[in-house]
Amino acid sequence: MKTWKGIVGVSTAAVLLLGGCGKSDVSSKMDRDKTVTIGVTQIVEHPSLDAAYKGFQKGVKDGGVQHVDFKYKVAQGEQTNSVSIAKTFVGDKVDLIFANATPSAQHAANATKRIPIVFTSVTDPVGAKLVKSLEAPGTNVTGTTDTHPEAIPKTVEFIGKEIKAKSVGLLYNKGEQNSVVQIEKVKQELKKYNVKAVEATVAKSADVKQAAASLVGRADAFYVVTDNTVVSTLPSVISVAESKKIPLFVGELDSVKKGGFAAYGFDYYDIGYQAGKMAAKILKDGKKPSDLPVEFPKKLKLVINKKAAAAMNVKLNPKWNSIAEYID
């Protein structure tokens, strides 16, 4: 979800590498006096994903795993890099893989059926073929989803009832499975309010600004879900929204901070923390990923950016004070 400067490998909080740990069964308990190695694969740099990783580290420690060597690598938004990172971790026989975002989780799951994988920032774990079901994953993979069941319905309701838009521009990369799932949900919800969906798809970040511009005159509002490609170049969408006075709704709170008008969201740090606690159960307590249900975000809130509202010519309604948090 962010522009890349390079694959980053960072090792923290450890000096010992536990040889052969990755060979052990995923349900075996760790020796609490030894250092465990966690391979961290993240598809792009982005404040939300970065916050999830920080939360994950804290969750692991709070879960009782004190001696950890985090091997952190980022794929620059490139699928081939992500595949390579996953294969490297498998070759290194890490004790656990933390996959941050859907593509990273898919590539890790394709690379190993033995090493436990804990994901976060994944929209549809079942649709992505990471788990058999949310309640009983049934594989070496589990984690936390970044989909709150009420986020899209509440966003669309606000667009229909409060903004009173008759058409909404949906900008996304149809090659991202997580985005396709969200867009289908958005379109279903829009029908409830007789709001027309106008789509513009992209294949790469360079396409985003032109695609956003193509929606001008056809959409009363924009809605960008948590699409890695579009969010990586969100400023280009914001510039179109501001220049044409079109309210821009986004899929997560960091995009509101960057200049989106509003979002129903949660803190990615929290779902990362939840994932970290799950990883600790696997590493410390010998739990199997297959037996740990996928978890949802526990909190949801509406956040509105006042400066963005002014730039996009949205008049703030006093009644929103009771349902929203504001940032300047």
Rank of each mutant, 00 (worst) to 15 (best):
K258A: 12
K258W: 00
G260Q: 01
F261D: 00
F261M: 08
A262W: 00
A263F: 02
A263L: 04
A263S: 15
Y264Q: 06
G265R: 01
F266C: 02
D267R: 06
D267M: 09
Y268G: 14
Y268N: 15
Y269T: 03
Y269H: 05
D270H: 05
D270R: 05
D270N: 12
D270T: 10
I271G: 05
I271Y: 07
Y273C: 08
Q274C: 09
A275S: 15
G276C: 12
G276W: 15
G276R: 14
M278V: 09
A279I: 02
A280V: 03
I282E: 01
K284S: 07
D285A: 09
P289C: 06
P289D: 10
D291W: 03
L292P: 03
P293R: 08
P293L: 02
E295R: 08
F296L: 13
P297D: 13
K298S: 11
K299V: 12
L300Q: 08
L300N: 04
V303M: 14
V303Q: 14
I304R: 03
K306Y: 06
K307W: 00
K307I: 04
A308D: 01
A308W: 00
A310L: 14
A311F: 10
A311N: 15
M312F: 06
M312T: 12
N313R: 12
N313I: 04
K315P: 02
K315T: 14
L316R: 09
L316G: 09
K319P: 11
K319V: 13
W320Y: 10
W320E: 05
N321I: 02
S322N: 14
S322G: 10
I323K: 12
